[in-house]
Design a protein around this nucleic acid. Sequence first.
DNA 1: TCTGGGGTCCTAGGACCC
DNA 2: TCTGGGGTCCTAGGACCC
Length: 422
Amino acid sequence: MIALIDCNSFYASCELVFRPDLAGRPVVVLSNNDGCIIAANKEAKALTHIPMFEPVFKIKKQLLEHNVVFFSSNYTLYGEMSKRVINILKTFSPRVEIYSIDESFLDLSTIPEESLEAYSHLIKDTIFKHTGLPVGVGVAKTKVLSKLANRIAKKVETNNHVCIINTEKQRIEALKWCAIKDVWGVGRKHSERILKIGAASAYDFTKVPLAWVRKEMTVVGERTWRELRGEPAMEFVVNVKKKKAIGTAKSFGKKLKNLDIIEEACSYYVGEVTEVLRAQQSCASAINVSITTNYHSNRDKQYSNSITVQLNTPTNDTFLLIKEAKKALHLIYRSGYVYKKVGVNLLGIIPEDYVQANLFEAPSASKSKLTKVVDSLNIKYGKSKVSSALVGTRIKEWELIKEERSPRYTTQWKELLILKSK
DNA sequence: TCTGGGGTCCTAGGACCC
DNA sequence: TCTGGGGTCCTAGGACCC
């Protein structure tokens, strides 16, 4: 049996752990640049109707009327809280698949069937006791079914946040309860197509002929179909896989016209992604740079472009990659537009031990020692204390907006939570 | 009239996830 | 005024190889 443990309204719950004074009040967490709502606690969800991903400015008035508390996203905090949850889960099973920041699969094959329910409650209660985070637990024979069980645990009040799908009767009941659009792996496009052929529930979908599923939804859809029928078709991935692409593309705090300032933002992002690249002991063999105007705007002239540069020799050297990114940016930049976003993406990622030298290029003097020193200084003194001069110093001119970010309680000495004594 | 067969690699685009 | 960011997997089609 496989369990899926999922934290409820994860980002909002993380904020509430450190702000018990806000208990009972509606709380929402905003996206980067404070643009959209990306998480809401149950009080906020209960309020009228707060659509996720709704631009905040459109409903701000309404939210203020209801006394909603806003937080900008604080990924440092959420990442740390996530690690704590995972460490607890590892004490409950030797095999844990970390699926996302707030979800993990657990192999419970060694737990006797009659103990599954008690064990699930124990997992849930232990996490709450040690972190203050509420979670739901779904258990079933396949990953897709445990996702479904988790959904039932969350939505059906009487379940007390735990749901086990074990018998054939339970499986069919669960499938009939679940609308096709809510099945894990079936998105908007596919659920429209499935509805069109008359299947409305997950149960109906399992009765659609495999040939149709295969043709319309490829092998990915076939796996979902099999798993819903109780036949395992997805791998349980215990080892963290190295990333195959590492990228970043964030909106600017304000719109930008000039190449020199966009260049600085671009260089800064290259610094960020190469740090991740080095942390997984890899090198990139290509880098992609993209720029785009604000596609929401009807008034601005629109332009977007991107370019991929193959490197002569794969590298993880920030300084070399900034140089390449800058050249690439110059090729796609056009003056006369107002830009909203620049992105960099590292591609063709290979382990650093596999790098093959280029026959026609003199080996460059190794800067690996320099980047190591830079990395260790930044770990010690804080993010981006040391960086390439190409990054510049005008970060305030393009940096994204985070007006309501909470303190980084768990990772910065200066921002520790203070408990006042009388 | 009729024009091989078996591959690899790369890219763009679509669909999905949190 | 203001609209998120970071990923994965799969397929088709083009270009190339022997």
